[in-house]
Design a protein around this nucleic acid. Structure first.
Length: 198
DNA sequence: CTCTTGATTCTCT
DNA sequence: GAGAATCAAGAGA
């Protein structure tokens, strides 16, 4: 249950983006009681050409340069709301994109918002997560350790898989995408590990 | 100012 | 697999 694991505080988000992104796999995220287990994340930071923060603070990305443990929400393709968790305590412009969630709580509300009943498709993508959890710009900059957010650490060790990020043209080969091994709720399959011998 | 490009998803072919 | 929906940054004139 969500109440069995420790609630994450800002200090838990002070690490580098890839470290936090990996640590968030298996964590529970809820907005107004609706959500589930994080099964896919991607890391971004200022040195990364693919990151919104790469060219410094702007009105849109200012949350990324603020305190860690807060949300950075942006509009994607003029249609979708995508949510990041801001990390690092030094205003570096680092964050973790929440790409997929395994629906566990408030599934009926997610179904209503998404207009689908296939649980597997409710939160399997950053735009889908935004719609299922009713994310909007109103959440931009808000603390993740206060209502309506509830973020809890993974209650047990989980096996994490890594791969290149999705939907970007710059630094597309950087392996900063993390996923829960074997999860059916990721947005896309992870590349199979390179076999050393045929 | 105009032009291009997206950290995407859905629908139709 | 291709195209649309739809808008805010970012780049360039």
């Amino acid at each position: 249950m969500a109440t069995t694991s420790r609630r994450l505080r800002p200090k838990d988000f002070e690490g580098d983006a890839p470290v936090v992104a990996r640590a968030l796999i298996g964590a529970i995220v809820l907005i107004d009681g609706v959500g589930g287990r994080i099964v896919e994340t991607e890391a971004y930071d200022r040195e990364d050409p693919a990151s919104h923060s790469h060219s410094g603070p702007t009105p849109r990305n200012q949350a990324m340069f603020g305190p860690p443990g807060r949300a950075y929400v942006y509009r994607s393709y003029g249609i979708h709301w995508c949510m990041n968790f801001v990390c690092r305590e030094d205003g570096h412009g680092a964050g973790v994109l929440i790409r997929a969630v395994e629906p566990l709580y408030g599934i009926d509300r997610m179904i209503a918002r998404r207009g689908l009943e296939d649980v597997r498709l409710l939160c399997s993508g950053p735009g889908r997560v935004g719609q299922a959890l009713a994310v909007t710009h109103a959440f931009n900059g808000m603390r993740l350790d206060q209502a309506p957010f509830e973020v809890r650490a993974a209650s047990e060790d989980v096996e994490v898989v890594v791969g290149p990020r999705i939907g970007i043209s710059k630094a597309a080969d950087v392996p900063w995408r993390f996923g829960l091994a074997g999860s059916r709720f990721v947005s896309r399959p992870f590349p199979k590990p390179v076999s050393l011998r045929a």
